[in-house]
């Protein structure tokens, strides 16, 4: 795509994003904020899974870490939510580093299993330590801003999402991003060229977990209620399905996937519990017939048109 057109498109999207609250009702504003959360989650998971080929099942767990740390800090130490979010992010980064050091050397299936175990252990702890975490009842936490305003919350979430996306984009385009892809393509060859495979993978894991921690903390303070649902495999499934359906290993894929799924789920809400099933079936169909996701289909179409 010509550069000019890309820029125009970006400008239009930014404008649409900025004007959205002024014509969207309260309900759609809420949907928009949730969508921003999923964009952050799926994009950061994609940085790990799509660019370095490591499927982590702890991404939702790291969002939970961010949310609970920030929420508990706000309740017990009266830390302002925005500072709390930074703290939550830092703790997620630290845990990500610890877990990464433990399991990244083995990679592949082992990484998936270890992250799954970590995620479930965390959930069990939060369920059981209800005196501290309120268990499945959920933890009531202060709103993200001193004054309740959905519009301001939307702009805050939007700004953070844009910042996160910018960081991801610059990483993908940097030498580190090239190293990510080299490691995903062929780690033996990458190592033979002087790439420290374990460090590169660890970097991806920690960066991705940190972003999840930030997204989770903001999400928790927006909802004002944090439940163990945030680190459930269900949320993990949504994040994964968004990235898969949008197109893993592409920058735009998770964004498209999040918007697609969030708005689709609004339209099929009348079918209630059907919607997870439907997402699942769509994701399966995409895996089977279009492994590159919607972005892959789009690119193929563009190529067909131009030739």
């Amino acid at each position: 795509m010509p550069r000019r057109r890309t820029q125009t498109l970006q400008l239009l999207m930014a404008l649409g994003l900025a004007l959205f609250p002024f014509f969207a009702g309260d309900y759609w504003l809420h949907t928009g904020i949730i969508c921003l959360f999923y964009i952050m989650m799926a994009s950061s998971w994609n940085l790990l899974a799509g660019y370095t080929g490591q499927v982590s099942f702890a991404h939702a767990a790291f969002a939970g870490v961010g949310a609970y740390v920030s929420g508990l800090a706000a309740i017990h130490f009266h830390l302002p939510p925005l500072l709390g979010a930074l703290l939550g992010m830092a703790v997620a980064a630290f845990l990500g580093l610890l877990l990464g050091v433990l399991c990244i050397r083995m990679g592949g299936i082992y990484l998936s299993l270890t992250t799954l175990a970590f995620s479930e252990m965390l959930r069990i702890i939060i369920d059981n330590e209800y005196e501290f975490t309120r268990g499945t009842m959920g933890l009531s936490v202060p709103f993200i801003l001193p004054v309740y305003s959905k519009t301001t919350a939307y702009f805050l979430m939007g700004a953070v999402t844009v910042a996160v996306l910018c960081v991801i984009r610059s990483i993908v385009r940097s030498d580190l991003g090239t190293a990510f892809r080299a490691v995903q393509n062929d780690e033996t060859a990458a190592a033979s060229l002087g790439i420290h495979v374990v460090k590169v993978r660890l970097a991806a894991f920690v960066i991705s977990s940190t972003m999840a921690g930030l997204a989770g903390a903001l999400y928790g303070h927006y909802h004002q209620l944090i439940t163990p649902e945030i680190l459930s495999l269900n949320l993990m499934f949504f994040v994964l399905a968004i990235a898969v359906i949008g197109g893993m290993g592409t920058f735009v894929g998770p964004i498209v996937g999040a918007i697609f799924l969030e708005f689709l789920s609004e339209y099929i809400r009348i079918y209630g519990q059907f919607h997870v099933l439907l997402f699942g079936l769509i994701a399966l169909a995409v895996c089977r017939f279009a492994p590159q996701g919607l972005m892959g289909l789009w690119q193929r179409r563009m190529r067909a048109l131009s030739s």
């Binding site: 090239t178 892809r181 080299a182 062929d186």
Partner: peptide, 15 residues
């Protein structure tokens, strides 16, 4: 064992 999904240019950059 080149990096199949990367361009020749990027392959050399990895080195």
């Amino acid at each position: 064992r080149p990096f199949h999904e990367m361009t020749c240019y990027e392959n050399v950059v990895v080195g």
